[in-house]
């Protein structure tokens, strides 16, 4: 099974999703991320989803939940690079966006997580 690579940059964990996410890959991704936070004590988590042209409600929920779980573990999550058509689709379906922090791209997300950008 394809695993999504997770990189570490100082206090921040970075992951870019490019594969077509099926449910088990998404769940494994969540497990891996939380495991890495536990091991490294990272304070920030940056997930780049610019490679995804479909995010259905299941995957969206896994991503949103991951952010909430990470927060419980003391890490702030920023979701970056969501494509316009993916955002429009999720919102049209009635998916709530509360509690999800976002940024335009990885640069900006990293700036938020490293405190270079006040938000």
């Amino acid at each position: 099974m394809t695993a999504i690579p997770i990189l570490r940059l100082g206090n921040v964990l970075l992951a870019a999703v490019h594969v077509d996410l099926d449910d088990s890959v998404a769940e494994r991704f969540q497990e891996d991320l939380l495991g890495r936070i536990e091991k490294t004590g990272a304070h920030g988590l940056l997930i780049d989803i610019s490679g995804l042209d479909v995010v259905d409600t299941y995957v969206a929920r896994v991503l949103a939940d991951t952010g909430k779980m990470a927060r419980l573990m003391g890490a702030r999550t920023v979701l970056v690079g969501m494509r316009p058509e993916v955002a429009a689709t999720l919102v049209r379906m009635g998916f709530g966006v509360e509690g999800i922090e976002t940024a335009l791209d990885a640069d900006e997300g990293l700036a938020i997580l490293t405190g270079a950008s006040a938000r």
Partner: peptide, 17 residues
């Protein structure tokens, strides 16, 4: 277009699930 296409793929995904 990209928006209609994303909507269709997402619908397919939801229904298949």
């Amino acid at each position: 277009d990209a928006f209609a296409s994303a909507a269709l793929m997402t619908a397919a995904s939801e229904m298949a699930r």
